[in-house]
Design a binder for these strands. Structure first.
Length: 129
DNA sequence: CTCCTGACTCAGC
DNA sequence: GGCTGAGCCAGGA
């Protein structure tokens, strides 16, 4: 899985330039950087922010993303199983998979196909920069 | 200020 | 091997 058991302790979280932005903004910022055709999980973002255990907050922040200024590609964020857990929170329950299909991402049974392959880990991608 | 909920995840049974 | 319970942090009532 993306999150390697997290045996190691989270030391340096955000790269240089850490702001006192609210937890939400951090999540939004990371979510917006998800490349097209890629997906990530709440846990990955949570771990990147240093709250791997509290993946809930990520999803919660996503809810906030709707009223955020720049639209956040929440449809690219799914749970650890790659399942479209938050699709029901979109304008329409089918909106999420529709968007993902446009991203060339196959969605079957509300689950992203080849999720691992299309997985985008912020802790790695953003870390390497 | 206190209580509850929530787009998740892990551990236990 | 599937389900339930508990943990997590932050915002809203």
């Amino acid at each position: 899985m993306a999150v390697k058991k997290s045996s190691e302790k989270l030391k340096s979280i955000l790269p240089s330039g850490k702001k006192d932005s609210s937890f939400f903004e951090q999540v939004h910022d990371v979510a917006r950087q998800i490349p097209r055709g890629r997906v990530t999980s709440y846990g990955a973002i949570a771990a990147y922010l240093g709250t791997k255990m509290s993946a809930r907050m990520v999803g919660w922040a996503m809810n906030s993303s709707f009223h955020a200024k720049p639209s956040v590609p929440a449809h690219r964020v799914v749970n650890r199983n790659g399942m479209l857990s938050g699709k029901m929170h979109f304008a329409t329950p089918t909106r999420m998979e529709e968007l993902l299909k446009k991203e060339k991402i196959k969605v079957v049974d509300d689950t992203v196909v080849d999720f691992e392959k299309k997985f985008w880990d912020p802790a790695v991608e953003l870390s390497l920069e």
